[in-house]
């Protein structure tokens, strides 16, 4: 393997951190969903790198399952966002307090 394992892990850690920046800083719910996808991709990259370098198949199986759940999460999350926009005319998370009482 020409590129050592630590490089892939470092890249994955930085991708995850960029996703955290998006979740913590932005106010638009769609951008927050995109940042969650970035974080999931960082975790996936870690799993694939370990799977290849340790000659262990289960990491790639797990990535497959994570991707399926991520697609399901994006579908349901975006449906909720579109529904909220229809009711409140905004997808700004600072204005979303429907669940509070």
């Amino acid at each position: 393997m020409p590129v050592p394992l630590g490089y892939y892990l470092g890249l994955a850690a930085i991708i995850f951190t960029v996703g955290v920046i998006g979740v913590l800083v932005r106010r638009n719910a769609i951008i927050i969903l995109m940042s969650i996808e970035l974080m999931l991709n960082g975790a996936n990259l870690t799993l694939v790198a370990f799977s290849v370098h340790l000659q262990e198949l289960s990491g790639q199986v797990f990535v497959f399952l994570v991707m399926t759940v991520a697609a399901a999460e994006a579908a349901v999350g975006l449906a909720i966002i579109v529904m909220i926009f229809r009711n409140r005319e905004s997808v700004n998370v600072d204005n979303l307090n429907i669940m509070k009482w």
């Binding site: 800083v25 932005r26 769609i30 991520a70 697609a71 994006a74 975006l78 966002i81 579109v82």
Partner: peptide, 29 residues
């Protein structure tokens, strides 16, 4: 999944909620 489905779904959601997400709105909390 990601390039073909998830991001296209995101673009659909952006198109459906676009009016209030223009350049004048502050994007940082």
């Amino acid at each position: 999944i990601y390039v073909g489905a998830v991001t296209i779904l995101m673009i659909f959601a952006v198109m459906l909620t676009h009016q209030l997400t223009g350049k004048t709105i502050r994007q940082v909390n």
